[in-house]
Nucleic acid binder design. Structure first.
Length: 731
DNA sequence: ACAGCGTTAGTTTTT
DNA sequence: CTAACGCTGT
């Protein structure tokens, strides 16, 4: 036990050994947050304050959940498998499988991932003959998910105009379709669980009594529904607990909240303080990751945000190196500089894996990749296609889903004609019509409508039926093997000269099923209850939806790491390059208009800065290819928010930008007014506008009194201005 | 059924 | 500029 608590700093120790009460731990970047979380659980259990089954630990990602589980297993001599440690979605899935009847679901209910959900919505619109120009499927999906994340069903949704009223109707139709098909989307997992707990008091009280300690990671990322769910389980929701509810131990960092766009409510942190009457928050401010200069820069930057809970990172490590700032003439020059530095560092023996290139948006990786490739440097781009997202895997899983649940129309539509078997658009439309008329699934419609026994539809149904009958008692990996064979998938990819990789992935799927059965597939028996489910098939399918698998390519290699700043959250590297630090890019122009948006961008920058352990590079370019056009860019305002004494500009030979761009880029109108003036307006020229401030001229059109210039004002956006009226002075 | 063409949009993303 | 999508023609 003393081992357990050794090497904790005072606030960490205070957090870990807090008496049973609600708490908010404000955990800065690199402050040992995961350690505190896992040690807290271990301490609670090893001091006998709670049994393993009395703990509920929630994270957002599978990676975090696995890490917590692994660390806990290393701290405690108990089997952590039966414990309720997992993602919000994973735990809700477990809960709904155990109580599927009360939740109004079948034991076989399937989970739609985002792609499936979108396909389901497109199918719905087609069925209802709705113009998807007027109701774009993606937008409708967002509308539905946003409502679910607020805990709002179609029946309660407000419609303030005709358009929204129609969308609410469609939301309702979508709910009906999912229910008919026996599928739930990601947000439904949460909403369904929440509603069941709220409606079923005995059940809710059972879980309230069971979980004595609820621990939440990344609390700043919770949405309204997730917070409501936590409150309910902690006995602070609408169902009151007779005994005292669980203690809620929330760990988070408001300065690292970067997911507002997907529903995260930063306000949940203050709400928690208020609603749970927290006297104080424990701050973990000692940083074990970065050198002092990097932390000073991060602290100075984030101080610009308003309404923070407040926190100042510090370290016992020295100040370290200054932060290097580089300005390139173009995005290409920027990338070339970075690659040059990387070569030098690699020559000095720095591991390539310890160097990360961060950018605001994915499109930026292209130029960087190109330069790295030219130098023959190994690199890895994070955020690519994941294992269970591959089309061949999705096809195989769709067959599997159809075996488990014939009503799953999304699965049916996906594979009814893949590999092609002569069931074209008209047959499918006929099936859809028939299904609608008799209000049944596509599969049932196909089964009853498969008129001529020799028809393609009849053959498909027969194939699925015999597959289901003959694989009923086979172990899962063999079922998958059979299905790949009998569906014609193997044959199809064998014939495709580029199908080699896909066949290997299909074999990998069989392996994944074997190891799933070995690791996670054991029937869960925890505490007093046996957790039932729809059998190994249903749980494997749930696993596939909930855990799309890590990005596979080049995992172990010593390669330069490329990723968006979002993807870098939670990671750390010796050397970090933050690239594209330009107004309009980072902060992004879509976000920089309002304070809230700009503050979120600043938090994003804060996350980026705090990834670096030893050395940080901030790079930007004067010009950048964007949407096929050369954009003239101003340096990011975030650069100005960093204390200048921490920075070192390192523009070397190759960077020297032509300060006077070529004559041919002179703006027509300006040239007409003052042809030879030294301060003639030209593309790339910095100008000042009375209202919008400083900007760069991006392009121009027209001549004489009609001449207009397009100016990039960064945070103020990109604007067209008539030279005759707008008073632009060189800046 | 599928290739080829034209059109359009173009932050961030986990489950 | 490009990638992705949808439509049309064979």
């Amino acid at each position: 036990m003393s081992d357990l608590l050794a090497h904790l700093n005072p606030p960490q120790l205070a957090a870990v050994t807090l008496p049973p009460q609600h708490a908010l731990i404000l955990a800065g970047a690199g402050s040992g947050k995961t350690r505190v979380l896992t040690t807290r659980i271990a301490w609670l259990i090893s001091t006998g304050q709670v049994g393993p089954q009395g703990v509920l630990a929630v994270t957002f990602t599978n990676k975090a959940a696995k890490e917590m589980q692994a660390r806990l297993a290393a701290l405690l001599p108990i089997n952590t498998r039966g414990m309720w440690i997992g993602t919000f979605h994973g735990l809700c899935n477990r809960f709904l499988r155990a109580h599927h009847r009360e939740a109004g679901l079948t034991a076989q209910f399937q989970i739609l991932d985002s792609a499936d959900q979108l396909a389901a919505i497109k199918r719905l619109l087609k069925n209802l003959n709705i113009d998807d120009e007027k109701y774009p499927p993606r937008e409708l999906m967002h509308f539905i998910n946003a409502h679910k994340e607020q805990g709002i069903r179609a029946a309660q949704a407000e419609a303030y105009d005709a358009y929204t009223s129609r969308r609410v109707e469609l939301y309702g139709e979508y709910e009906g379709q999912c229910q008919r098909e026996g599928v739930v989307d990601f947000s439904e997992l949460l909403l369904r669980s929440y509603e069941l707990l709220q409606r079923n008091e005995p059940l809710c009280q059972h879980y309230q009594a069971r979980f004595r300690h609820i621990l939440v990671d990344e609390f700043q990322d919770t949405n309204r529904l997730q917070y409501a769910w936590l409150k309910l389980l902690a006995g602070r929701g609408s169902v009151k607990s007779e005994s005292a509810g669980a203690c809620l131990f929330a760990v988070g960092d408001d300065d690292q909240s970067i997911y507002a766009f997907r529903g995260a409510e930063i306000g949940n942190m203050r709400a928690l303080q208020r609603e749970f009457d927290l006297p104080e928050v424990i701050r973990l401010e000692q940083n074990y990751r970065s050198h002092g200069n990097i932390l000073d820069a991060a602290n100075a930057l984030i101080k610009q945000n308003r309404g923070r809970l407040g926190k100042n990172l510090w370290t016992e490590a020295g100040a370290g190196e200054p932060i290097r700032v580089f300005e390139g003439y173009s995005d290409i020059a920027e990338a070339a500089f970075i690659v040059e530095e990387i070569c030098e560092l690699a020559g000095d023996g720095v591991s390539r894996q310890q160097m990360a290139l961060l950018y605001r948006s994915n499109a930026q990786s292209r130029v960087l990749e190109h330069q790295l490739f030219k130098q023959g440097l190994a690199y890895r781009v994070h955020g690519g296609l994941r294992f269970f997202d591959r089309q061949e895997i999705k096809h195989a899983l769709a067959y599997l889903r159809l075996l488990a649940n014939p009503d799953d129309d999304t699965a049916f539509a996906r594979v009814v004609n893949f590999p092609t078997r002569g069931i074209g658009g008209r047959s499918i439309e006929a099936l859809q019509e028939a299904a609608r008329q008799s209000n049944c699934s596509l599969y049932n419609a196909a089964a009853s409508l498969a008129g001529k026994p020799g028809g393609a539809v009849a053959r498909f149904i027969a194939m699925i039926e015999s597959l289901r009958a003959e694989t009923r008692d086979l172990p899962l990996p063999e079922v998958i093997d059979q299905l790949i064979e009998r569906s014609g998938l193997r044959q199809h990819y064998l014939a495709d000269k580029e199908g080699q990789d896909r066949l290997e992935n299909l074999d990998e799927l069989i392996n994944a099923a074997s190891s799933f059965l070995k690791d996670d597939g054991v029937p869960l028996v925890d505490g007093d209850e046996v957790v039932p489910d729809g059998g190994p098939l249903a749980s494997f399918l749930a696993h596939a939806s909930l855990e799309a698998g890590e990005h596979q390519a080049g995992e172990g290699q010593d390669a330069i790491q490329l990723m968006t700043v979002h993807a870098a959250k939670g990671l750390e590297f010796d050397i970090v390059f933050i690239t594209g630090l330009e107004q309009g890019l980072f902060p992004h122009e879509n976000a920089a208009q309002e304070r809230e948006g700009l503050e979120e961008e600043r938090r994003l920058m804060y996350v980026a800065v705090t990834r670096a352990r030893k050395r940080l590079y901030l790079t930007h370019a004067q010009t950048r290819m964007l949407h096929g056009q050369t954009r003239y860019c101003l340096p990011s305002s975030f650069l100005e928010e960093l204390p200048v004494e921490l920075l070192r500009k390192i523009n070397r030979g190759l960077s020297s930008a032509p300060l006077a761009p070529p004559r041919s880029t002179a703006v027509a109108g300006a040239a007409w007014q003052q042809p030879a003036a030294a301060n003639a307006l030209r593309i790339g020229q910095n100008v000042r506008h009375a209202r919008f401030g400083v900007g760069v001229i991006v392009s121009s059109e027209g001549a004489g009194p009609e001449a207009r210039v397009q100016v990039n004002f960064g945070a103020g956006g990109v604007k067209w201005l008539a030279l005759e009226y707008a008073k632009l002075t060189p800046a």
